[in-house]
Amino acid sequence: MIINNLKLIREKKKISQSELAALLEVSRQTINGIEKNKYNPSLQLALKIAYYLNTPLEDIFQ
C-alpha cells in the first residue's frame, strides 16, 4: 500500500487544495480524492505535484 503524505506536505507549505488544483490544472475534487487515497494519480500528475510542492516524489508517495 502506498503511504500518501500529500495533505501533510500541502498544509505545511500553506497551499490550499484549490490553489494546488489550479496549478496542476485539475479539480479540487481530484486533489481531495488523492489525499483520501480514493484516487491514485498518474505518474505525470504525481511528478507535477512533486514539482509544484518542491518536494521529492518519494516524500509525497511512499
Results as ranks from 00 to 15, higher is better:
1 M>C: 15
1 M>K: 10
1 M>G: 13
1 M>W: 11
1 M>R: 06
1 M>L: 12
1 M>E: 10
1 M>T: 11
1 M>Y: 13
1 M>P: 13
2 I>H: 11
2 I>A: 11
2 I>M: 12
3 I>L: 11
3 I>E: 09
3 I>S: 12
3 I>Q: 12
3 I>P: 10
3 I>D: 08
3 I>W: 09
3 I>N: 11
3 I>T: 13
4 N>C: 08
4 N>E: 02
4 N>R: 03
4 N>Q: 04
4 N>D: 02
4 N>A: 04
5 N>P: 03
5 N>Y: 07
5 N>D: 05
5 N>I: 06
5 N>C: 10
5 N>Q: 09
6 L>A: 02
6 L>D: 01
6 L>S: 01
6 L>V: 09
6 L>W: 00
6 L>G: 01
6 L>Q: 02
6 L>C: 05
6 L>M: 11
7 K>S: 06
7 K>P: 03
7 K>W: 05
8 L>S: 13
8 L>C: 15
8 L>R: 13
8 L>I: 13
9 I>N: 03
9 I>C: 07
9 I>F: 10
9 I>S: 03
10 R>L: 04
10 R>T: 01
11 E>G: 05
11 E>H: 07
11 E>Q: 13
11 E>S: 07
11 E>I: 10
11 E>V: 09
12 K>P: 01
12 K>T: 11
12 K>I: 10
12 K>N: 11
12 K>M: 13
12 K>C: 10
12 K>Y: 09
12 K>Q: 11
13 K>S: 07
13 K>R: 10
13 K>W: 08
14 K>I: 04
14 K>D: 08
14 K>H: 13
14 K>F: 07
14 K>R: 10
14 K>N: 11
15 I>V: 09
15 I>A: 02
15 I>S: 01
15 I>W: 06
15 I>Q: 04
16 S>A: 05
16 S>Q: 05
16 S>G: 06
16 S>E: 06
16 S>V: 04
16 S>K: 08
16 S>R: 06
16 S>C: 05
17 Q>F: 03
17 Q>S: 06
17 Q>D: 04
17 Q>M: 13
18 S>M: 13
18 S>Q: 12
18 S>K: 12
19 E>G: 08
19 E>D: 10
19 E>V: 07
19 E>N: 08
19 E>Y: 09
19 E>L: 08
19 E>M: 11
19 E>R: 14
20 L>N: 00
20 L>V: 00
20 L>A: 00
20 L>S: 00
20 L>F: 07
20 L>K: 02
20 L>Y: 01
20 L>G: 00
20 L>R: 00
20 L>H: 00
21 A>P: 00
21 A>G: 05
21 A>T: 01
21 A>V: 03
21 A>C: 04
21 A>N: 02
21 A>H: 02
21 A>D: 00
21 A>R: 02
22 A>L: 11
22 A>P: 00
22 A>Y: 08
22 A>I: 11
22 A>D: 11
22 A>G: 09
22 A>Q: 13
23 L>H: 15
23 L>D: 05
23 L>G: 10
23 L>P: 00
23 L>Q: 10
23 L>C: 09
24 L>Y: 01
24 L>E: 00
24 L>R: 00
24 L>I: 08
24 L>S: 06
25 E>G: 15
25 E>Q: 15
25 E>S: 11
25 E>I: 07
25 E>N: 14
25 E>L: 09
25 E>A: 12
25 E>V: 07
26 V>L: 04
26 V>A: 02
26 V>W: 03
26 V>M: 03
26 V>Y: 00
26 V>C: 08
26 V>D: 01
27 S>G: 06
27 S>P: 14
27 S>T: 11
27 S>V: 03
27 S>N: 09
27 S>K: 08
27 S>E: 06
27 S>F: 03
27 S>H: 06
27 S>C: 06
27 S>R: 07
28 R>E: 15
28 R>S: 12
28 R>F: 10
28 R>H: 09
28 R>Y: 09
28 R>P: 15
28 R>V: 15
29 Q>I: 10
29 Q>N: 14
29 Q>W: 12
30 T>E: 08
30 T>N: 03
30 T>V: 15
30 T>F: 13
30 T>C: 15
30 T>D: 05
31 I>Y: 07
31 I>V: 13
31 I>C: 02
31 I>R: 01
31 I>F: 03
31 I>W: 01
31 I>N: 00
31 I>S: 00
32 N>R: 15
32 N>Q: 13
32 N>H: 10
32 N>S: 12
32 N>P: 01
32 N>A: 15
32 N>Y: 09
32 N>T: 07
32 N>E: 15
32 N>V: 14
32 N>F: 07
33 G>P: 01
33 G>S: 15
33 G>W: 13
33 G>F: 13
33 G>M: 15
33 G>H: 15
33 G>D: 15
33 G>R: 15
34 I>S: 00
34 I>M: 07
34 I>E: 00
34 I>Q: 01
34 I>A: 01
34 I>P: 01
35 E>W: 03
35 E>A: 01
35 E>R: 01
35 E>I: 03
35 E>Q: 00
35 E>G: 01
36 K>A: 14
36 K>Q: 15
36 K>V: 10
36 K>W: 06
36 K>Y: 07
37 N>D: 06
37 N>P: 01
37 N>L: 09
37 N>Y: 13
37 N>W: 09
38 K>F: 14
38 K>R: 13
38 K>A: 08
38 K>D: 10
38 K>I: 14
38 K>G: 06
39 Y>F: 14
39 Y>A: 07
39 Y>H: 10
39 Y>V: 13
39 Y>S: 09
39 Y>D: 05
39 Y>P: 01
40 N>K: 15
40 N>C: 15
40 N>L: 12
40 N>G: 12
40 N>E: 12
40 N>Q: 15
41 P>A: 06
41 P>I: 08
41 P>M: 04
41 P>G: 04
41 P>F: 07
42 S>I: 04
42 S>V: 06
42 S>W: 04
42 S>K: 08
42 S>H: 07
42 S>N: 08
42 S>L: 04
42 S>D: 11
43 L>Q: 11
43 L>V: 10
43 L>A: 12
43 L>R: 14
43 L>T: 12
43 L>D: 07
43 L>P: 14
43 L>I: 12
43 L>K: 13
43 L>C: 15
44 Q>K: 11
44 Q>V: 10
44 Q>A: 13
44 Q>G: 14
44 Q>W: 10
44 Q>D: 14
45 L>M: 07
45 L>A: 02
45 L>W: 02
45 L>V: 05
45 L>S: 00
45 L>H: 03
46 A>V: 06
46 A>W: 14
46 A>L: 08
46 A>E: 03
46 A>I: 07
46 A>F: 03
46 A>G: 06
46 A>D: 00
47 L>S: 08
47 L>R: 12
47 L>D: 05
47 L>M: 13
48 K>Y: 04
48 K>Q: 08
48 K>M: 08
48 K>A: 09
48 K>N: 05
48 K>E: 06
48 K>F: 03
48 K>H: 05
49 I>E: 00
49 I>F: 03
49 I>S: 00
49 I>D: 00
49 I>M: 06
49 I>W: 03
50 A>P: 00
50 A>V: 06
50 A>F: 02
50 A>R: 01
50 A>G: 05
50 A>Y: 02
50 A>S: 09
51 Y>I: 10
51 Y>L: 08
51 Y>R: 09
52 Y>D: 00
52 Y>C: 09
52 Y>N: 04
52 Y>T: 10
52 Y>Q: 07
52 Y>L: 11
53 L>C: 04
53 L>A: 02
53 L>P: 01
53 L>F: 07
53 L>V: 04
53 L>Y: 01
54 N>K: 11
54 N>G: 10
54 N>P: 02
54 N>R: 08
54 N>F: 05
54 N>T: 08
55 T>C: 08
55 T>A: 08
55 T>G: 02
55 T>H: 07
55 T>Q: 06
55 T>E: 10
56 P>Y: 05
56 P>R: 11
56 P>V: 03
56 P>S: 08
56 P>I: 05
56 P>L: 05
56 P>W: 05
56 P>A: 12
57 L>G: 03
57 L>S: 04
57 L>F: 10
57 L>T: 05
57 L>Y: 12
57 L>P: 05
57 L>I: 13
58 E>T: 14
58 E>A: 09
58 E>R: 14
58 E>V: 08
58 E>F: 09
58 E>Q: 14
58 E>Y: 07
58 E>C: 11
59 D>Q: 13
59 D>H: 09
59 D>G: 06
59 D>W: 07
60 I>K: 01
60 I>A: 01
60 I>E: 02
60 I>Y: 03
61 F>V: 03
61 F>S: 01
61 F>P: 01
61 F>R: 03
62 Q>R: 09
62 Q>F: 13
62 Q>W: 10
62 Q>N: 11
62 Q>D: 09
62 Q>E: 11
62 Q>C: 11
62 Q>G: 14
